[in-house]
Simulated assay, not measured.
Amino acid sequence: MKIIQLSYDEKNPISGLSLCLGFFDGMHRAHQKLFDLTIINAKKLNVPSGIMTFSTHILSFLKQEHFRALSTVEDKIQMAEKLGFDYFFILVVSKNLLSMPAVQFVNRYLLDAAHVVVGYDYTFGYKGEGTPELLEQLLPRKISIIPCLNFYGKKVGSTRIRSLLEAGKIPLANRLLNRPYQIQGHVVSGHGRGRQLGYPTANLSVDGYFIPKEGVYYTKALINQKLVDSMTSIGTNPTFSEDDLKVETHLLDYSDRLYGQDITILFYEYLRKIKRFSSGSELVDQLHQDEDNIRKISWSKEE
């Protein structure tokens, strides 16, 4: 898959594509409807397939806020490659790009496409003036609009998934994503308390990701292309009077050194809230219970 970054004054260099457009935060179940149709159209028309997205969230750019993503650009690239796309286009968000009239946006990036797929609520161009209906006018006979996808009577979307993650409702969030929610982090040094307690943890720097509800989770760690059962803590450490929010994970049945590596954490179940223990030994007792619960869940999923 070829990755192409485009600024506001660069024309799409690839013509004749089956192309889908969107921000695609989470690459969730509804987005996958667009991806599937784009690849089907590419095969039907015998043309390459492509995804076109933005370098950052537009509202966050306008408000100068740090965006916490369900999936980073790097995540999207990895998923798109697994799906079999030929091209991945990144539109670099800038004031000039956001000032571009919708018709100019179409002429610059979409006019030479063989087919275009968007969601029913996709907007583009200056102040979001471009709509799927406008695309139908400007790109007759080569535009497909995917309708709203509902799951359990509610729209599948990034906002709903974020709310579920904030509530610790991981299984339902994963069903909307059609995969386990995951974050990738770099292992950094910590205080070493976990090792002293018999539960060494990898302390993760996870800048840029949306972080689920504080608590302890059953997770799996992807490291060196291998999935390992793990328990992950998100929150402070009140037992030792530490107030900084941390993401740290303990890998079960794994003893190799992790410091300095990048690992991916996949979330499966919320186990319990973070709480203060009266002593280190009481905390260890709880960690033993957490480990037992994780092993039971893991075994039940394998049956």
Rank of each mutant, 00 (worst) to 15 (best):
G22F: 02
F267G: 06
E65G: 05
V117N: 01
P180M: 07
L134T: 03
V118G: 00
D262P: 02
E10S: 01
Y126R: 05
L138S: 14
G208I: 12
L139N: 15
I90G: 03
N178M: 15
M52R: 09
L172Q: 13
K275C: 03
G194H: 02
Q182K: 07
L45W: 07
K275D: 08
M1F: 12
L197W: 07
E269T: 03
Y87I: 03
L138C: 08
S278D: 13
L138A: 04
I146R: 08
P180L: 04
K76P: 02
F151G: 07
A113Y: 01
I183P: 04
S99Y: 00
L17K: 00
G168F: 02
V187I: 15
E303T: 11
G190D: 08
V188E: 15
D9L: 11
V284G: 02
Y209M: 07
R68T: 10
L222K: 12
T38E: 09
R272V: 15
H66V: 13
R195M: 14
I297V: 05
D229F: 14
E133Y: 09
I143W: 01
T232G: 06
T239F: 10
R175C: 12
L165M: 09
K127S: 10
L177E: 04
L134D: 05
D9N: 14
G280F: 11
L245V: 12
I145G: 05
R141V: 12
P147R: 15
F23K: 04
F267H: 07
E166A: 15
G157L: 06
N224P: 01
P140R: 01
L271I: 09
R295D: 05
Y268T: 01
Y254M: 05
E291M: 08
V206R: 05
V92W: 03
I39T: 10
K301G: 13
V228S: 06
E282N: 07
T249V: 13
K82M: 10
I274S: 02
G84Y: 04
L110T: 00
L83F: 03
R29W: 14
L91N: 08
S189E: 15
W299T: 14
E302W: 10
G215M: 04
D292N: 13
I39H: 06
L34P: 12
H31P: 04
Q78L: 08
H250Q: 12
R272F: 14
A114L: 14
V228M: 07
G185N: 04
R257S: 01
D9T: 09
V47P: 00
V92L: 03
W299Q: 08
E303Q: 11
L45N: 12
N203I: 09
L17N: 01
A202R: 08
N96C: 10
L245T: 07
P171N: 11
D262Q: 11
T56Y: 14
L19G: 04
L62A: 07
K11H: 06
G260T: 13
E291H: 10
P171F: 14
Y209Q: 04
S144H: 05
G215L: 02
Y152F: 02
I4M: 03
I145E: 06
L164I: 10
S158E: 06
P48G: 02
L177K: 05
D112G: 10
E81C: 02
L177W: 00
N178I: 09
K44R: 08
Y109R: 00
E242D: 12
K127Q: 06
M79S: 12
E129L: 01
E65W: 04
N203F: 08
V93G: 09
V284E: 06
I274L: 06
P101L: 09
L138W: 01
W299F: 13
